[in-house]
Simulated assay, not measured.
Amino acid sequence: MRKSLAVILAAAFAVSLAGCTAIPTATSCTPLSPAGDASNAVSVTGALGEKPTATIPTPLLSTKAETTTLVRGHGAPLTTGTIANVQASLYYGKTGQLLTATNFDAKAPLQVTVGVTSTSNVGKYLQCQRDGSRSVTVMTAKQFFGAAPDPSTGLTSTDTLILVTDIQKTFPGRATGALQLGQSGFPAVVTAPDGTPGVTISGSAPTQLRYEALRKGDGATVKKGDEILVHVTAIDWSTKSSFTSTWTSKVPQALRAESVTDSASGQLDPGSAKALIGQTVGSQVVVVVPPKFGYPSGKAPSGYPTNATVVYVYDILGIE
């Protein structure tokens, strides 16, 4: 029986995804590493999100970072600070050898911050990519690691590496909800352009749990037991200094929306759990937790101040 035209086109479309060619980058976004001859020379086969096969003309050498988009994806181009769940494979340019890769388990992705330099710059060159995209970046080992590679890797700074990255899911890098009218008596929160909160505390510490949404998101509602992705800053009321903040590294934290007193898998103090459950994704929530609503003895994370009233600013970025 003859195949319908729709089936033939669908098959042709599947083949075009399996054997990717370069797609022009959106003109509204300027990538950190534009496409070039080296990145355009790499072809990749395999379904998005599954272990790919890269064909690399060897030796492939480059002294600058280049990124070619192989599958465009959907939505707006990603900007610095966006959080991305990715699967990635790293190859050696001289031989084409696969050096390392993620496990390609959709439930256990590598989470990176777009455009941010870290110990391995998987996210650094993803600017202007999109949710559901596949890209290939050719760069030196020094550009990948952000510094000269550790001697134990056997790599030199000028060795060429090829990174193939599939973006599975993205989250905004900060709370994006609508601004709300603040209540009196709360610490004042001013947000920097990159989303980092600055907190001003005055007066006596309250004795009761207090919380409010400074921004109200329109995303899903956080339920007890959800795995939520947050940026969080925690400040000791008495010293008025922050003792922990994910904004320092620009890497958010995944937390179970459950108190340590409710479940062995709970991660939040009782006050924060009460404040966050029922909030919506995209919200920024300030929580003031007096000691009696804080972590019980022996349950607090390392570095948590003893018998302190703690001010938290949570940006709820998503639900995993």
Rank of each mutant, 00 (worst) to 15 (best):
P305D: 00
V112I: 10
A257C: 08
T306M: 09
A264F: 13
V116H: 02
V138H: 04
V71M: 11
A254P: 07
L48F: 10
A106Q: 11
I316L: 09
L98R: 09
P77Q: 05
I23K: 10
I167C: 03
V313C: 05
H231Q: 05
Q208T: 15
A35S: 13
Y91C: 06
T306S: 12
T113W: 01
K64V: 15
G303Y: 02
P291M: 06
A101W: 01
I23Y: 04
T200I: 11
L70E: 00
A273F: 04
R72G: 05
I56P: 01
T246H: 04
G303S: 03
R215T: 09
P149V: 06
Y91R: 02
L214K: 09
A108N: 15
E212V: 00
A76K: 09
T248G: 15
A14R: 06
S184T: 03
A213Y: 06
D269V: 06
K169S: 11
T207W: 02
T158G: 12
Y92S: 07
F145E: 05
G182C: 10
S16R: 09
V116K: 10
G146L: 02
T27A: 15
F145C: 01
Q180R: 08
T233G: 09
G219R: 07
L268K: 06
S89T: 14
V116Q: 08
A35C: 06
P187L: 06
L60I: 05
G198Q: 12
V138N: 04
Q87Y: 03
D166N: 09
D226L: 05
M139F: 08
I277G: 02
L99G: 04
G318S: 11
T68R: 03
T21H: 14
G182Q: 13
T306R: 11
N40R: 15
A12W: 09
S302Y: 12
L163G: 00
Q97W: 08
A38E: 03
I316D: 02
G96R: 05
I23M: 10
V114N: 01
Y92E: 07
I23C: 04
V71T: 11
D166L: 01
D159Y: 13
A65V: 00
F171C: 03
P24H: 10
P34M: 03
P252V: 07
I201L: 11
V122Y: 11
V285Q: 01
V311I: 15
G75M: 07
V86L: 04
T58G: 07
K274C: 03
S157M: 06
D159R: 10
P57D: 08
G81S: 03
G46M: 02
P197K: 00
L70C: 04
N103L: 15
S249H: 14
A148I: 01
S241P: 10
V311P: 00
V112H: 01
S133W: 03
H231C: 02
T113R: 05
K169W: 00
Q87A: 12
Q253K: 14
